[in-house]
């Protein structure tokens, strides 16, 4: 079943086109990773989907119903974790979760149970009476998540929930999201960290300049591009290297030498490593460490847009 169907969304801020015919389909039960550099329009897309932002063109359906500010039946099923921490500074951890849960669940007993579960889920049990300003960045992010998911929504939208978070909190957040998905929630997760998206997303949409430029599973995306792997070789007498000869090998896309480290990017398949080693042997180059890296989403992004994902 289709959970979200966004067609041809256009959103302008004055002259700036933040979303340029943005299309997105999300299926029930998946973790969709929306990956794109800062300023690519992820937050704008999420806010349009949530009916917070006016848009200039296009349509948004959630659970086959048109999304609107007063589509309360749809909103009831959505949990939102915004990019910025959205909690009341005057309320404690417990009160904040209770307040936002209360906007969805009016029965007091049910809510009590849900809030307790949410606190458990994000591991804030020792901090329930703390005010937000007493929490570290990581704990604050966890509170932000708890406020968005306490009412057990079927669809959870998280906009960069791990920005400025220590690695430990980040891992626990990512594990939590996977757990929510295993419990049946459909997840949309935006990030500009490819590692995170690779780790948790079952399907990835790569975004640039307000458009989805590639979409598929991690493997599908990497198969889409020419480069197969990056072969790293440590050269013991790098000064004797004939780099052009390496570049001339068929199936070699690029070769770069920095200090004594040679990085060769080859196209997929074949016995590239053996061919390279043969060539180096012929040049009488001694070799130290050798290792090979599979392509990353950064390579995918680089090949499609001509620029790095993070710059």
């Amino acid at each position: 079943m289709m959970v979200i169907n966004v067609k041809n969304l256009v959103k302008r801020y004055g002259d700036l086109i933040a979303l340029d015919h943005f299309n997105l389909q999300v299926q029930e039960g998946e973790v969709l990773g929306l990956l794109g550099p800062n300023g690519s329009g992820k937050t704008t897309a999420i806010n349009c989907i949530l009916s917070l932002l006016k848009y200039d063109k296009g349509s948004i359906e959630i659970y086959d119903q048109p999304m609107a500010p007063d589509a309360y039946a749809i909103k009831r099923n959505i949990g939102v974790v915004m990019q910025n921490v959205a909690v009341f500074n005057e309320l404690t951890v417990y009160e904040n979760i209770d307040y936002f849960c209360g906007l969805y669940i009016s029965d007091k007993q049910t809510r009590k149970k849900l809030v307790a579960e949410a606190i458990d889920f994000v591991g804030l049990n020792d901090f329930t009476k703390f005010l937000p300003k007493k929490l570290s960045g990581g704990l604050l992010r966890r509170l932000n998540i708890a406020c968005g998911i306490a009412h057990k929504p079927k669809l959870i939208i998280l906009d960069e929930p791990t920005v400025a978070v220590d690695p430990q909190s980040r891992n626990s957040i990512l594990e939590g999201i996977q757990k929510l998905n295993q419990q049946g929630a459909t997840i949309i997760y935006t990030s500009h960290y490819m590692e995170e998206v690779e780790q948790i997303a079952s399907r990835i949409a790569i975004m640039d300049k307000g458009k989805i430029i590639a979409m598929g599973t991690n493997e599908e995306l990497k198969r889409m591009i020419k480069s197969g792997e990056h072969i790293n070789l440590e050269l013991l007498n790098a000064e004797d290297l004939d780099l052009e000869a390496i570049k001339a090998i068929p199936d070699i896309i690029s070769a770069e030498l920095s200090d004594n480290q040679l990085v060769v990017t080859s196209s997929r398949g074949k016995n590239n490593l053996i061919v390279i080693l043969d060539q180096l042997k012929a040049q009488h180059i001694a070799i130290g460490k050798v290792y090979s890296e599979p392509p990353t989403l950064n390579d995918v992004f680089l090949e499609i847009t001509g620029k790095e994902l993070r710059d």
Binding site: K75, I78, N84, A86, F100, L103
Partner: peptide, 11 residues
């Protein structure tokens, strides 16, 4: 930001 969150709720 809390305003944004309240606006996404079914109220």
């Amino acid at each position: 930001d809390v305003g944004a969150r309240i606006n996404t709720a079914p109220t």
